[in-house]
């Protein structure tokens, strides 16, 4: 049994590998930016270690450097990170089986990347197949990589200007496409994706990723309404003599 658990852990790390690569430039740029903005090294490192939330960290250090007030920074970080609550709620059926002690590190290490691969695993394979080990294999890999690359960014400082403008975030884009497409199984899933794409484009310039939250809710509601309308129609058809 131990080897099965170990195998699930390794599979979690393996499936996250492309996303780990995609996260490298972000963490390096974060470290470099924190250094360039004159924050103490320990603050830059501590945020990566205990906050561990990619986009929120960028916004936090940028606001800190501009001298924003503490409540402004905290509120902004809260809003930017709020999509993780949606992720956590959607994982409820799969974490129910685990002790509270296991759920703590799972929640702490919940990121876009680990969510994406874990939800895939939970819905496509046998969900009981050591899901927690799979999840934590993915999360540990993301976490260690994030710490190492934050440190590299700090040490290397300004050697890496504007890494994202070199197009290194393309790996994240194509990885997310590869994760979403297999989930598009029924017409209402496509409706959800189309509404998400359209609304996400129109609300791009809304502050602090509030467009992302708004568009997510609109897209989810559209998908559900379409699914229910479609089902009702087929039920009526079935009941007709």
């Amino acid at each position: 049994m131990i080897s099965n658990k170990l195998q699930s852990t390794i599979e979690g790390a393996r499936d996250t590998l492309p996303l780990v690569f995609a996260a490298i430039p972000f963490a390096i740029v974060y470290g470099a930016l924190g250094h360039a903005q004159g924050l103490p090294d320990w603050v830059v490192i501590a945020i990566s270690m205990v906050v561990f939330a990619g986009a929120s960290q960028f916004i936090a250090i940028t606001l800190m450097a501009t001298g924003a007030a503490l409540p402004v920074i905290v509120l902004t970080v809260f809003v930017v990170n709020l999509r993780h609550m949606l992720y956590a709620v959607s994982l409820i059926p799969y974490v129910k089986q685990f002790s509270q002690l296991k759920r703590l590190p799972m929640a702490f290490t919940l990121t876009d990347e680990t969510y994406a691969v874990a939800f895939n695993r939970a819905t496509q394979d046998d969900p009981s197949a050591h899901f927690a080990h799979y999840y934590l294999g993915s999360a540990a890999f993301m976490y260690l990589n994030w710490q190492l690359c934050t440190w590299i960014g700090l040490v290397a400082g300004n050697q890496f200007p504007q890494l994202t403008s070199f197009g290194l975030d393309i790996a994240m884009v194509v990885a997310f496409i590869g994760i979403v497409v297999p989930h598009l199984k029924i017409p209402s899933h496509w409706v959800c994706a189309l509404v998400a794409a359209l609304s996400g484009t129109l609300t791009y310039d809304w502050p602090n990723q509030s467009g992302l939250l708004f568009s997510s809710v609109i897209a989810i509601i559209s998908g559900v309404m379409f699914e229910n309308a479609f089902n009702k129609k087929t039920i009526i058809k079935k009941e007709a003599p």
Partner: peptide, 29 residues
């Protein structure tokens, strides 16, 4: 109904991250 809606979370959120990253360069469409 909530469980039904939750199945749409990854499709919605990841699609938005994809379009907001790939359709925009330096803040412009």
């Amino acid at each position: 109904s909530v469980e039904q809606a939750l199945n749409y979370v990854p499709i919605a959120v990841l699609t938005i991250i994809v379009v907001q990253t790939s359709l925009f360069r330096e803040g412009q469409l």
